[in-house]
Amino acid sequence: MTLKVLDLGVSRGGVPVLEGVNFAVDPGEAIVLTGPNGVGKTTLLRTLAGLQPAYGGKIVVPDPEAMTYAAHADGIKAVLSVAENLMFWAKIHGTDGIDGALEAFNLRDLADRPAGSLSAGQKRRLGLARLSVTGRPIWLLDEPTVSLDKASVTLFGDVMRAHLAQGGSAVIASHIDMGLEVRVIDLTPYRARAKVSRDYDEAFL
């Protein structure tokens, strides 16, 4: 399942932030988006996920349901247990079994704890475990390694490798090296230029 981005422009709050973005992600491939804060990494990912309309260009993907998005917020309910949280997302996506995800992210011992009592890093692991239970091939990840310790980053790297080996793909906004073979795209050159109005009349002012 190949995700193609053709001459894409994205805007935030009505202001264009990126334009002319072109790339393609083939199965088994991961792309890392870099760029300074505010360049539009999150906006680009949200546009790819279909949460906001593109301001120009096209996103070509055989099946829009193939993508799953992981944001800064993990979507965890504090009063539900770890297993209940994962089970909910598994049911929503019509997949069965959360055991693999619990195992992969080392959450088995925490399965019956209320998610509200987890540490920031453990919550993040639970948030990432959700990706595995969705069963979708294209992962859109926004800073997935925030608040993870070194061991957990390695754990996540292993999960990513397994995902890519199964023909999955990923677009990741991150500054941290996860020990993966990735293509890095710097978004800085795609910054939207300030528009110069054609019929701007200096004399009028």
């Binding site: 996920a49 998005y69 917020a73 979507g75």
Partner: peptide, 15 residues
């Protein structure tokens, strides 16, 4: 759901 991000995830879910 909006605060904890679930709403974004529900919006991108198959439902």
């Amino acid at each position: 759901d909006r605060e904890d991000g679930s709403l974004d995830l529900l919006a991108t879910s198959p439902v």
